[in-house]
Amino acid sequence: MQPVTKPQKNNNGRIPIIPRQTKTRMTIIVLVVVLLYAIAAFFTKAYPNRIITGFPHVIDFVKDDLFPPNWSYYKTVSTRLLETWNMALLSTTLATLFCLPFAFLMASNINTNKYVYSIVRFGMNVLRTIPELILALILVAVVGLGPLSGVGALFLFSLGILAKLLSESIESIDKGPLEAIRASGGNVFQVIRYGAMPQILPHFTSYSLYVLEINVRASVVLGFVGAGGIGQILRQQLNLFRFDNVATIIIMTFIAVTIIDMISTRIRERLV
């Protein structure tokens, strides 16, 4: 709460722009935050000198182990990269379709039923708190090793994100057109289709592409727990100490992810 007093001269004879009370409180907050950072660094032993002394090891690893890459390994890498891309694409597409009903149920200007609203919102919050790695582990246990569990994990994960992002766009749309369709006797589905959808379409497309980018990167990691894709051979080659193959994997993944990100970002820039 801001103090409700008339601005008055302080000891120096100047009228302060920020009241003294506010200033004191801000100073205390800043000090506490700095202290928290210091404590965090101390307990995690995140000292700068460790990075400096460790740096030569990194250079040695790149110079001796990763170089030169085994280019003849590119065929396997390409197949697995394609698998990674397919996993990301499939899971994102499914999520964009299934997130729509949830997003509208999570938007207070469309769903006026308080109970349904809270329940769906809570459910989606829970879904979003589970890391995709845990989802993948669970699905690997259920459907077994391979890309299917990766697709499932990414689907659930992106469903949560998309529904949340989209519901927030829906809540911020111009309510005039919704009112107009209601006033002419349209039901809630028609209000959504003709009042809300045209307004959120650019956001919807943009979020979907953004989630696709996230999923491409996430599906690399998911391979580590056996959920298919490029990550699976990365771990395998690391375990075999075939660093020449690892180098090929890293370089090709880097190029592929960069290209996908670039294209997607370009498209998104044009949308909103």
């Binding site: 111009d174 005039g176 006797g185 307004q199 379409l201």
Partner: peptide
Amino acid sequence: RTKIGMIFQNYNLVKR
């Protein structure tokens, strides 16, 4: 409501 047309100050069209 189907029998009652309404016109608003801000037109309330879907602009896009």
